[in-house]
């Protein structure tokens, strides 16, 4: 907790996520999305727990429309786990915390 989440956008996505030196978990969200707001604290909490092994980042789909299109995102929140520059797994919706944690742990 406390540590700010990395904000990524269309122009930084490749360098910061695809070329990251560790697995990256990206939360695709938007400011008007209620369920996105609901899971945000959990995402930050998980960063506190696993932030040394996984890169936690978020991408505002309103400001960066190209990246969500590229990954076929049609609902938010969507979490995508990237490993070695490729999509490893994807999780859609405001699902329970335990499920988000299980999902994040797939990166380990």
């Amino acid at each position: 907790m406390g540590q700010n989440l990395l904000d990524v956008n269309d122009s930084t996505f490749e360098s910061e996520i695809l070329n990251a030196d560790k697995p990256a978990l990206v939360d695709f969200w938007a400011p008007w999305c209620g369920p996105c707001k609901a899971i945000a604290p959990v995402f930050e909490e998980l960063q506190g727990l696993y932030g040394d092994k996984i890169l936690f980042a978020r991408c505002n789909v309103d400001q960066s429309p190209n990246t969500p299109t590229k990954y076929g995102i049609r609902a938010i929140p969507t979490l995508i786990l990237f490993k070695d520059g490729k999509v490893f797994d994807q999780l859609v919706g405001a699902v329970p915390k335990s499920q988000i944690e299980e999902f994040a742990k797939k990166a380990l």
Binding site: W32, C33, I76, V92, G93
Partner: peptide, 17 residues
């Protein structure tokens, strides 16, 4: 098809359509 066409939130996802 959740997240691949099925959505429960118009306010969140209308922009993808």
């Amino acid at each position: 098809f959740l997240g691949r066409g099925v959505s429960y939130c118009v306010d969140c996802d209308a922009g993808f359509y």
